[in-house]
Amino acid sequence: MELVWRALTTADIPAVTALWAAAEAADDTGELLSEEDVAESFAKADLPAGSLAVLVDDVLAAHGLVMLRDNPAGTHRVRLDGVVHPRFRRNGIGRQLMQRLVAMARDLHSARHRAMPLVVTTMVESGCSGHVALCERLGFAADRHFHELEVALGESLAQLPTPAGYEVVPFSAARHEEVRQVCNTAFAQHWGSVDRSPAEWAASFTDSKRFVPETSFLALADGAVIGFVLARHYPAVFETTGVRELWIGDVGTLADHRGRGVASALLSRTLARAREQGYHRAGLSVDTANPTSALGVYERAGFGVARTWADYGLPVEPA
């Protein structure tokens, strides 16, 4: 078949959304995206220099994005996102797409962070054997594994008290900069984490239609933020499955306040509020090697493993 390669544009958002839907119907990875979700990811990418549309007879057969971070530290881990329509798989398109995305990532990295080591990465759901095989053939290795956890928001949810000396309060937009700084500090030692710039923070939370402040909470000690639960909602999940899911994007506590039940109290408050607001389920992702014992906190809250993802990485020499 004859392939046409070009950069994506915002005019491709409906076709990319339909492509994700077709892939999800075949792969069952839980990646349910609306046009607004795709538009949000497009806004974070350099479309002219860091995206690809693959066309067969004017039909979108595959697409890819190169996703850079604003403030890389140590090693620049550049994420590659993309998918091939099930109808066009096993024709070598995925291999060519990945190779071209790697080259684009190398060029973008060399222009911005040439002195820093580069690793290109892609997230792979464990059940996608074809994606796993492709990554391994291209030399990628699984650097880290993440569990996607879920809990049903039924009447059996435990209500945990706030530890003495702390206060749990609703998220306030007036504290967004303080929360950003606390979030960066709390995750500073986490694998693969980098500081979120004000622009990245705004795109993910304060300016995002997916952020749900009503089910997001802060923990205070002596009036200062020391912990947080920040939640998001993706309407496409409900529209596709009938399940209204609250996605807990970030849970963190400053190191000096860990091990005291702060995170558990925050999580308990978020789940209770989500149930009050009509959510059926809550979900989140956790690093299986998280050094803060976060997995245990989530398991005690009733979360169970729904899927496992691997972060595949490939070191790349600068251009």
Rank of each mutant, 00 (worst) to 15 (best):
T29L: 05
L134M: 08
Q159N: 06
A164N: 04
L65S: 02
P117F: 05
R232D: 01
L157T: 04
N290V: 12
P48T: 13
A236R: 01
N91W: 00
A22F: 02
R95E: 15
W191C: 10
L266H: 10
A141Y: 05
A186Q: 04
D207E: 15
V251Y: 01
M104E: 02
G223C: 14
R300N: 04
I248P: 01
R106V: 05
L153H: 03
A142Q: 03
A188C: 03
F303T: 13
F238M: 01
V237E: 08
G154C: 08
A141I: 07
R69K: 15
A133W: 05
A173Y: 14
A188Y: 01
A164C: 07
S156G: 09
T185H: 15
V305T: 01
L33Q: 06
L218R: 06
A164Q: 08
D37S: 04
A142V: 06
E245G: 07
F140L: 05
G313C: 13
A188Q: 11
C135Q: 07
P86M: 04
S264W: 11
T206R: 14
V286E: 12
R114W: 07
G82T: 00
F217E: 05
T253V: 15
A174Y: 03
G227W: 12
R144V: 05
T240N: 06
E200Q: 15
G64T: 03
L230R: 12
A105P: 02
A219I: 11
S285N: 12
A186I: 15
W191N: 06
E245Q: 14
L267P: 02
T308F: 02
Q99V: 13
V297W: 11
R90C: 13
T215R: 11
A141N: 08
D46L: 03
F211S: 03
G92R: 04
F228W: 12
H76G: 02
G252F: 07
R269G: 00
D28P: 13
G50W: 02
A111E: 11
R95A: 08
S204K: 15
S264Y: 12
A23D: 11
R300T: 05
L138D: 06
L149S: 00
M98R: 08
L97C: 09
T215H: 10
D12S: 07
D195S: 13
L138C: 10
G165S: 03
A294T: 00
A310V: 10
A274T: 01
F146E: 08
S197R: 15
I13Y: 10
M123W: 04
L8Y: 10
A105Y: 08
K209I: 14
P198W: 14
